[in-house]
Simulated scan of single mutants.
Amino acid sequence: MSVFDFLHTLLTVSFFAAILRAATPMVFAALGGLISELAGVINVALEGMMLIAAFAGVVGSAWAAVLWPDAGPLFFALFGAALGLFAAVFLALVLAVFYLEFDANLIIAGIGINILAAGLTVFLLFTISGDKGSSAGLTSYALPSIAPGFLGDLPVIGALLAGANGDGHHILIYAALLSIVLVWLFLHKTRLGLHLRAVGENPEACRTAGLPVKRIQYYAILLSGLLAGLGGIYLSMGYLTLFQSNMTAGRGFLALAAIFLGARSVLGTAGAAAFFGLASVFAAQLGLLGVPTPVVFAVAPVLTIIALLLFSWVTGRREKTAISRALQALRKSKGQEHA
C-alpha cells in the first residue's frame, strides 16, 4: 500500500467505524470509572471487572444454549450478557466491601481483583473447555447488530452510524454513545448525581449535612462495575464472539487514564477514550504500510503517554497563570491600601 492510499483510508467511513468499535469498551469503562472517581473512590479494578464480564458472558450464553435449547440465539446472548453484568457488579461489590467496611487500601484491593480476575478466568476456562487460551471450543453467542433507522438519513452522522456496509453497528456501540448522555444527565441533573459529586468533593461536610456517604459510595462503585461490565461484554460478544485470556489487554487502565486526561468531565473522558480507540486503529493501519510489528504495538502506548504529558503540561501552565494573576491582584489591592 502506498502512502497516498494509506492517507485515503484514514478519511473513509470504515476507518471512523473502526474507531467506534475500538473505543466502545473504553468508553464504558471510563464512564464507570468517572462515576466512582467523582464519588471519591478510584476504581483500579476496571480491568478485572471487564475481564470477568467478558468471560461470564461467553460461558453464560453457552450454558443457556444447553439448558434451554429451544429459547433461541437472542435469549442465549441476553442470558450471557446478564450473567456477565452480574459477575462484574459482584466484583465491584467485593471491592466496595473491602474498602468501605474493612478499610482496605483501595489501590491494593483493586490490583488484587485484577490479578484474581486474570487467574480465575484462565482457570475456569481450562476447567470448562480444556483450553487456556480461548473459548473457541464453546458455542457462544453474540449480541445483535442493529441498523440506525431514521438516524441513518442524517448527513455525516448518519453515514457514521450506518457503518461501512450500511447495516449499522453492534447494539452496544449505540449503547456506549447513549451512555455518554445518560451519565451526564445522571451526574448533573439528578439528586443522587449531585450528592455523589458532593461526597467526592468533601465527604466530611456531607456527613455533617446528613448525607449517607457510605451508601452513595456503594452506589458509585456498583455503577462503575456495571458500566465496566458492559465494556467487557462488548469485547467477547461484539468485538469478538469468543473469550480470550487477558483479552482486555490493558483497556481498563487506559480507561483510568482517560478520566484524568478528560479532566474528570463526562465529555472529556469519553473524548479521551475515543482518542485511545483512534490510536489503536491508527496503529493497526500502520501495519498495512509494512511497519514492523513491535513499532505498531508501541504506537498506542506512546501516543497515550504523549497525550498525558501534554495534558499535564497544559494543566500546569494554567495553574501557574491562575496563581500569577492571584498574586498580581493581591499586590494591586495592597498597593491601593497603602495609597
Score class of each variant (00 low, 15 high):
L11F: 14
S14L: 08
F16S: 03
P25F: 04
F28S: 07
L31Y: 07
E37T: 12
V41S: 07
I42Q: 04
L46K: 06
G48A: 03
M49A: 03
M50Q: 13
A56V: 10
G57A: 10
L74C: 07
F79R: 00
F79H: 04
A81N: 03
L85D: 06
V89F: 00
L91W: 01
A96M: 12
Y99R: 09
L100G: 00
A104G: 08
I108M: 09
G110H: 02
I111Y: 01
T121S: 12
T127M: 10
I128N: 05
I128T: 08
G133V: 06
L138S: 05
P148T: 02
F150R: 04
G152T: 10
L154P: 05
A159F: 03
D167T: 13
I173M: 02
A176M: 13
V181H: 12
L185H: 05
L192C: 03
H195S: 14
R197L: 07
R197T: 08
E204V: 13
T208R: 08
K214P: 00
R215T: 09
Y219V: 12
I221F: 03
I221C: 02
L222G: 04
L226D: 05
G229P: 04
G231Y: 05
T241Y: 00
L242K: 12
F243K: 04
Q244A: 11
A249H: 09
G250D: 02
L254I: 15
F260D: 03
V266S: 05
A272S: 14
L286D: 03
R318T: 13
S324Q: 15
